[in-house]
Amino acid sequence: MKRREFLAGLAGTLASPGAALAQADPLESIIRVLTNGAPVRKGKVTLELPQLADNGNSVPIRITVDSPMTATDHVKSIHLYSDRNPVPNMASFYLGPRAGKAEINSRVRLAGSQRVTAVAQLSDGTFWSDTAPIVVTLSACLDES
């Protein structure tokens, strides 16, 4: 990179602190792609993880969304994000009124202690989220698993 380009880039970063902040939390920009800029509110979603996992290769996870799951008011999708895995979007689940109950259980891989976020999209187009911290003693490492 030339010195001139570097300085131009630096000036751009300084001029738009918002952009710099977005880069500070990479998950935020990834979630913004999902929501297309719509606000994500805390609540309705409950993300349950163990507080501590001995092994990140298989961590039980439960996501529940407070929703009546009727034709007019239901959960359309639930997205799971990790802020430390090499692939942040761990999974996306698509449900509908036929689900009857907005709850999903699965097992995830976590590369180290981190915060896991679940974002739910409701049928009215709003987004809700919950975040849970977890300590992982042995991470789902790249080669030792």
Partner: peptide
């Protein structure tokens, strides 16, 4: 699919543990 109608779908990635486990619900119609 429940008798041909999709009731649940998932896009998974490397963030899901080996031997993937999924638990979800549906209404018996």
């Amino acid at each position: 699919r429940y008798s041909g109608v999709e009731v649940f779908r998932a896009d998974l990635s490397s963030g899901i543990a080996a031997n993937p486990y999924l638990q979800f619900y549906t209404v018996a119609e």
